[in-house]
Structures are given as structure tokens and as C-alpha cells.
């Protein structure tokens, strides 16, 4: 595979790809850990609490404490579980979440400044690989990630786990159609599946996609919440109903991997929403003569991340049958109508 990638993308060398892959893995895992901290803090503030306060300044080192706890906890595998699948399921969730990120551009391309030794002057396309089927790849990978909860729930010989797995299937079947259909309309407008083209299209048009395609934007957001298993669609592991759903029997780092996968997915969805609908990084946005596209996209990603936490603090979650009703009877027809109208407009 290495050779073909290098051939396809002249400015991407295999060393660069390797470095970027490691960077993505490191930064996103760190961000996922930090995300748990932010989530606890934001939820606490919205409930007028302080949140974690005692480990480190403002409780910042709580992540480290949690990490130590997760790593040193006993790894329990239930007696009647299918051991192989039980062990491999969390890896699927975490791995697919990270693989999906490999085709997502987070920053604009940049050149490393000259004054930095050795690497100075190197042009860096800041995407691990600009696939020409980027969106398809990312959505497919995130969908494949659902095998994690599904297999985990079915392998652990626990009734709550089975219910969690069943709900995974229900949720998966419901929202995946909406995700695909909602993003189809923007794809028709842009005429490409590459994220970089999306970014450039909005840049050329000068208008964010979310104003061209408000319906698609809302539908995608809703489906994105379901995809990342967030409130109001957190059916898979809703404590009040199914103990912990698919994660009931997991402990220690295996459970932690589910968590990292979930947060990495949240970041991915935030990035996709920012790039596809909110203008993405725009290298020529200038403020005082500096290109601030990278800053803007970080703000956009942060906003979507915050929105997920905000929604979690505010809204009740819905029942599985309501989710199916919503996805199949409301969102899917809306998405179809949206595609139809877009198609007519594109044709004319």
C-alpha cells in the first residue's frame, strides 16, 4: 500500500505519512483524554458544580489519575464470554476511530518556517492521505467502528450486553442511512468526495455549505450525534436502563479503549461538520496579515465538541423505537426531498 500512496500523492512521502500517523494517534488520544476532562467540567458547570478540582490545578491532572487507574485495573474476562471476540472488540472501536481520522484534513497545508533547523522549508500537506473518496472512507470507517459495541455486547454472555448489542444494531441501521443521504446533497454540489475539495469549494463560493444546505446540515448533525453515541441517542450504554449496555463486563483499559474511540469519533464528527458545512480551514482568511484558517477551524471543532456536551447536559434521551421512528419516518424522507431539490437545482 505504501508505494501506491506515495505514487498517487507526490508531495506525501512515506516518512511524512508515518510521522503524521503517529502525530494523529498521539494528539487525538491525548485530546480524547482531555475531552473526558472537559466533558466533566462543562457538565459540572451546567449543573452549577465545580467538577474535578483536587488533582492538579483545577483538577487538570485528573486525566493522569484516571489513566493510571485504567491501566492498572484488573482486566477481567467473564467465564462464559467468547474470549477472543471479547478481547478484540474494544480494539475495533479504537482502531477504526483513528483510521477514520487518517483521511480527515485538520489544518490547511503549511510550510515549516525556515528558522527551524533540519525541517525548515519543508512543505507539509496536513492530512495523512488525501483520498479521493475521503468522505466515503471516513463514514465507512466510523460505521465499521460500530462492530466494536456489537461484538462486545454479543460476546460477553451478559443480558445487558446483549441488549446493548441489539440497540447498537437498531441505532446503526437507523442513522447510517441518514448520514449517507444527508451528506449526499453537498457531495452533489461539490462534485467530489475529497475533503480538500469541499474546503476549496466553500472558499471559492465564499459561502458556508450550511447556508446552501441547511437541511442537510441539521440532518447530518442529528445523525452525527447518533453515530458518536451521544445524548439524546446514547442508547447503547444508557446506565439508567441497561446498566452499561455493551460495556457492562468491561474493565480497565479495554473499557478505556471504548472511551477513547468514542471521543475520537466525537472529534472526527466535529471535524467533518466543520469542513463540510462550516467552511473548514480557509488558508486565505487573514487577520492582521496572518493566515488564521487553522485557528478558525479549531474554534469550529471546539464549538461542535462543546455542542455535544451542551446537548448532553440539556436534553433527555429517547427510546430506541423513537430513534427508529425519527430516522426512518422523518429524517430519511427529509433527506430524500433535500437530495431531489438539490439535484433539480444542480441540473438547471
Amino acid at each position: 500500500m505504501g508505494e501506491t500512496v506515495v505514487d498517487l500523492l507526490p508531495e506525501v512521502t512515506w516518512v511524512g505519512v508515518l510521522i503524521k500517523a503517529v502525530l494523529i494517534l498521539a494528539i487525538i488520544s491525548a485530546l480524547a483524554g482531555f475531552g473526558t476532562f472537559i466533558e466533566r467540567k462543562v457538565l459540572a458547570f451546567m449543573q452549577r458544580r465545580l467538577g474535578p478540582m483536587h488533582v492538579g490545578p483545577y483538577g487538570l491532572l485528573q486525566i493522569a489519575a484516571d489513566g493510571i487507574k485504567l491501566f492498572t485495573k484488573e482486566d477481567i474476562i467473564p467465564q462464559n464470554a467468547n474470549k477472543f471476540i471479547f478481547k478484540i472488540a474494544p480494539v475495533i472501536t479504537a482502531a477504526t476511530a483513528f483510521i477514520a481520522l487518517s483521511a480527515v484534513p485538520v489544518f490547511p497545508d503549511f510550510t515549516i518556517p525556515e528558522f527551524i533547523p533540519v525541517l525548515g522549508g519543508v512543505f507539509v500537506p496536513s492530512i495523512a492521505s488525501d483520498l479521493n473518496i475521503g468522505i466515503l472512507f471516513v463514514l465507512g470507517m466510523m460505521a465499521a467502528g460500530l462492530y466494536g459495541p456489537l461484538l462486545a455486547g454479543m460476546s460477553q454472555a451478559n443480558k445487558w450486553g446483549i441488549i446493548g448489542a441489539a440497540r447498537t444494531a437498531v441505532q446503526f441501521l437507523s442513522y447510517e442511512v441518514v448520514t449517507g443521504l444527508s451528506i449526499l446533497a453537498p457531495i452533489m454540489l461539490v462534485g467530489s468526495l475529497s475533503f480538500v475539495d469541499f474546503n476549496n469549494y466553500q472558499h471559492d463560493e465564499g459561502v458556508w455549505m450550511m447556508f446552501y444546505q441547511p437541511v442537510a446540515f441539521v440532518l447530518f448533525l442529528i445523525a452525527g450525534f447518533a453515530e458518536t453515541n451521544r445524548t439524546p441517542f446514547d442508547l447503547l450504554e444508557h446506565e439508567a436502563e441497561v446498566v452499561s449496555g455493551y460495556a457492562t463486563e468491561y474493565s480497565g483499559m479495554r473499557w478505556g479503549m471504548f472511551f477513547i474511540g468514542e471521543y475520537a469519533n466525537m472529534i472526527t464528527i466535529s471535524v467533518i461538520a466543520s469542513i463540510v458545512f462550516m467552511g473548514g480551514y480557509n488558508p486565505e482568511t487573514m487577520l492582521f496579515g496572518f493566515s488564521i484558517g487553522w485557528l478558525l477551524i479549531m474554534l469550529k471543532i471546539a464549538f461542535f465538541f462543546f455542542l455535544m456536551l451542551w446537548v448532553r447536559a440539556s436534553w433527555p434521551h429517547i427510546r430506541p423505537d423513537q430513534l427508529m421512528w425519527l430516522c426512518w419516518k422523518v429524517l430519511m424522507p427529509l433527506a430524500l426531498i433535500n437530495i431531489l431539490i438539490t439535484a433539480l437545482v444542480v441540473m438547471v
Binding site: F45, M46, Q47, R48, R49, W310, V311, A313, S314, W315
Partner: peptide, 12 residues
Amino acid sequence: GLWVTGKAMFKA
């Protein structure tokens, strides 16, 4: 709903 929690956070 969002407004209520947002306001609570701001006030807190």
C-alpha cells in the same frame, strides 16, 4: 433547554 443550561453555566 439549551438556553437554560447555557445560562446556568454562565451564571455559575
